Simulated scan of single mutants.
Amino acid sequence: MPPVAVPAGSVERAWEFFRKIGSPKFHVAPMVDQSELAFRLLCRRHGATAAYTPMLHSRLSVDTPKYLEEHFTTCDIDRPLFAQFCANDPATLLRAAQLVQERCDAVDLNLGCPQRIARKGRYGAFLMDDLPLIERLVSALSTSLAVPVTCKIRIFPELQRTLEYARMLQAAGCSILAVHGRTRDQKRARDTRADWDAIKAVREAVDIPVLANGNVRTLADVHACMDYTGAVGVMSAEALLEDPALFAPSRLTPEGARRPTEGCELLLEYLELTATHSTPFRMIRGHAFSMLGDWLTEFTDLRDRMNDYGLDEARLKEIAEEMQQRINSLGRDHPVPKLSARQLARAEMEESKRAAVEGQQRESDALQEMETKRDVAVAAASC
């Protein structure tokens, strides 16, 4: 890739924007069906200083108003907020971004999703095969939106390609670059450690603010990552799902260490937020499994109740309260699993598969509805 010139003043504007939103260090990552408003607010209560929306499909956002109405919700205290879109068409992406630009601080382009559905839809990390298209997508936003454009990427196996990629994004108008230190093929975070050296190299290669993503399980990890890479902030996903208070300053003190019942307490607090901020139950249920975590391997009867078709928020609250009482009565701070490692792995795989199938089906249904409306409109116009 030939060198690209950085537009005059763009770097200064990027840093001005970063300072304007408070130079946030602790970011809630964009997660499909998991970084919704109620969860973002919970994380903000416990130390998060910025957050991303769930990934929004640009074409569905433009053509299906109900889709955007469900997936993009916010409120006055939900700031700074980055609205993330996946896209492969500059015009569609711009139209989608314009629908939300007055209710967020920046629009983020998803260039990091490595899942099969992203391959099928030709978005996320699979756009890495077409860098000129990525450049057009970023440029379309940076030259036409009222808010800055940011990007979240994965790295190439070759460091030099990653650095050229990052410089191109900066030149195209990206104001903040979040770097996940894994390649597109490294889908499972637990299988491969993120490459902090690559993140550090990107930070040294560009002049705009860089966020680091990967290998963060504790607040101590957050600070270690920032110190090592020089990134201005850290983005967390899976670890934050398990511990929404990950960014709480007290986590660095012995007194602030995670208590055995804290997952139950955080879930109950989250349910209070969902009572105020309407949240699809599939999202609530997913968060409940993450927050209650390993204790479900001991209290398998509660896990079974969480898999009941009749589960609702009231019953979920009862489960969290019952688990809290049981843990307090144990006199120990760790679960004793009743499930074997193989059984637990199988259960987690089935849960992950179920969530993936549901996600793909929702997107397929929405696309089908959109195409049906389009066919009806074309038929009506030809009459």
Rank of each mutant, 00 (worst) to 15 (best):
V4I: 07
A5S: 02
V6W: 02
P7E: 00
P7Q: 02
E16S: 14
F17P: 07
Q34D: 09
L37C: 12
A38N: 13
A38L: 10
T49M: 03
T49G: 02
S58E: 01
L60A: 13
S61P: 08
V62P: 04
V62K: 07
Y67Q: 08
D78Y: 10
Q84A: 01
D89I: 02
T92M: 11
R95V: 03
A97M: 01
V100A: 03
V107Q: 01
D130Q: 04
R136W: 01
A140K: 00
V149Q: 05
C151L: 12
K152W: 08
I155G: 06
P157Q: 08
R161D: 15
L163Q: 04
E164N: 14
L169M: 12
A172G: 09
C174R: 03
G181W: 04
G181T: 06
A189E: 14
A189S: 14
K200C: 11
K200R: 15
A205Q: 09
V210T: 06
N213D: 08
G214M: 05
V216I: 14
H223L: 09
H223A: 02
Y228V: 06
G233P: 05
M235S: 06
S236K: 06
S236V: 15
L240I: 15
A245T: 12
R251I: 05
P260G: 07
G263A: 11
C264H: 10
L266I: 02
E269W: 09
H277E: 13
H277W: 15
S290M: 12
G293E: 03
E298K: 07
D304C: 08
Y309D: 14
L311Q: 06
L311N: 10
G331Y: 08
A341E: 13
R346M: 15
E351F: 04
S352T: 12
A355D: 10
A355Y: 01
A356S: 14
S364I: 05
A366N: 12
A366R: 13
M370H: 01
V376H: 14
